[in-house]
Amino acid sequence: MHFIITDGWGTKSRAVHLSGTRLVLAGLTVSVALMLAAAGLYHWVFLKGAREGWPVVGTLVRWIVKDEVAQRDRFVRENLDAMARQLGEMQAKLMQLDALGERVSGLAGVNPAELRSGPGRGGALVSGRPLSAQELQATLSELDRLAESRTDLLTVMESRLLDQRIKKMMAPSQRPIHDGHASSAFGWRIDPFTGRSALHTGIDFQADTGTPILAASGGVVVTQEHHPAYGNMVEVDHGNGLVTRYAHASKLDVKKGDLVKRGQKIAEVGNTGRSTGPHLHFEVLVQGVPQDPKKFLAAGRQGPQALAQGLPAPLRR
């Protein structure tokens, strides 16, 4: 494309040649300039109209702003509602955990009311109106406080249950012989050799020679010997001054210093020492003082709480 430019008197002229590429670039440049000018004018008109309150422009600006605010409020409201539903679910689960904790606390012997600071409060997060951000924040803080309280409660219960388990493992609650029955109880009786009243410091289990003798609880073998009165004898130390004694055995399967587990075979029933027939003489000593083994064996069958109550005072903690 050719353009010839002349002045008003026709004395001077100039020829301009535009190719297709130049025309496209020129068109794009003009279009961009027009768009920028239109955008600037649009922005200036709307700002000026909004500030000065022009009737049409002011109404249009308010409508646009109102629509944007409504969209933002709707977005915030939807998120707050979703958070409220999640908080309600969390609070319901916390109530279930609370109920479970109260049931378990009975087994641990813990009163949950003693560990709570303030009156009990709860309930699902149900509201007939939309909740504000401040109300949701307050609910979150309350849930955090309740969670810390329940954590303390469960920690105490865990400690108490562990303590009961240790006591159960320590106490000689395992019957030392399966195939046999108690033929002589703990207490005063007529001595079969002298015919006089004498204190029987254990329980006799009548059984055939060779019947396995089991450790009533785990511990360390502190005595393995032949005693003039007890015959072949084993003593197991369970800690805290608690010792069990197994006497009149025909054979000993452990030696001093061995570690034994609850229910482990440590000897066999026999008729050695001061004995009138095959049987196991079983004793429980606390700080060297004979105790009635029946209390330990019966408490072991009834559960850890009964076992803890049945322990002598030096072993209760």
Rank of each mutant, 00 (worst) to 15 (best):
Gly120Glu: 06
Val126Gly: 03
Glu114Trp: 04
Ala37Glu: 07
Pro278Gly: 07
Lys255Arg: 14
His248Trp: 04
Ser197Val: 10
Asn111His: 11
Gly241Asn: 10
Gly202Glu: 02
His43Glu: 09
Val126Pro: 05
Gln174Gly: 12
Val269His: 00
Thr11Pro: 00
Lys251Val: 07
Trp188Phe: 15
Arg77Glu: 14
Phe193Tyr: 07
Ser250Glu: 13
Pro278Ser: 02
Arg196Ala: 09
Gly219Ile: 11
Gly106Tyr: 01
Gly88Gln: 02
Asn271His: 13
Lys265His: 13
Thr59Glu: 15
Gly219Gln: 11
Ser173Gly: 15
Gln86Cys: 10
Val32Ser: 09
Leu214Ser: 03
Ala99Lys: 10
Phe3Pro: 01
Leu161Tyr: 04
Ile166Gly: 09
Gln134Ile: 06
Leu307Phe: 00
Ile266Trp: 02
Gly303Ile: 15
Ala15Met: 09
Gly270Lys: 03
Pro228Asp: 04
Pro192Tyr: 05
Ala113Pro: 10
Arg72His: 11
Lys66Ser: 14
Ser117Cys: 03
Arg160His: 07
Ile203Asn: 04
Met1Gly: 10
Tyr246Asp: 01
Leu153Gly: 05
Ala82Trp: 06
Tyr246Pro: 05
Met157Ala: 09
Gly270Asn: 02
Glu268Leu: 03
Val222Asp: 12
Leu100Gln: 11
Met1Arg: 12
Val254Thr: 06
Ala147Ser: 15
Pro119Tyr: 13
Ser132Thr: 14
Val269Leu: 01
Ser19Arg: 13
Val57Ile: 15
Pro192Leu: 01
Arg145Met: 08
His178Ser: 14
Ile166Met: 07
Trp188Gly: 09
Trp188Glu: 11
Gly273Leu: 04
Leu242Lys: 02
His226Glu: 10
Met1Ala: 15
Ile190Tyr: 03
Asp179Gln: 10
Thr151Asn: 13
Ala124Trp: 08
Leu47Thr: 08
Asp163Ser: 09
His2Leu: 02
Pro119Leu: 15
Asp152Ala: 13
Phe282Tyr: 13
Val286Glu: 07
Gly120Asp: 06
Ser250Cys: 10
Gln305Asp: 15
Pro130Gly: 07
Thr155Phe: 05
Leu60Ser: 09
Asp208Ser: 11
Leu28Glu: 03
Leu259Asp: 12
Phe296Lys: 06
Pro304Gly: 03
Pro293Ser: 00
His279Ser: 02
Ala215Leu: 10
Thr59Met: 09
Val284His: 01
Val284Tyr: 00
Lys256Met: 09
Gln174Glu: 15
Ala267Val: 04
Glu68Tyr: 08
Gly122Val: 09
Gly128Glu: 12
Leu153Ser: 06
Val61Gln: 02
Gln96Trp: 01
Gly300His: 04
Pro130Lys: 07
Val243Leu: 01
Phe205Ala: 07
Ala182Met: 11
Arg317His: 14
Leu28Ala: 15
Met90Arg: 12
Met170Asn: 12
Ala82Thr: 12
Gly53Arg: 07
Ser197Met: 12
Ala198Asn: 06
Leu280Ser: 00
Leu23Thr: 12
Leu87Cys: 07
His178Asp: 14
Ser250Met: 08
Arg189Thr: 08
Met35Cys: 15
Glu78Cys: 00
Leu28Pro: 02
Gln291Leu: 13
Gly273Gln: 01
His200Met: 09
Gln309Glu: 13
Leu297Cys: 06
Leu34Arg: 04
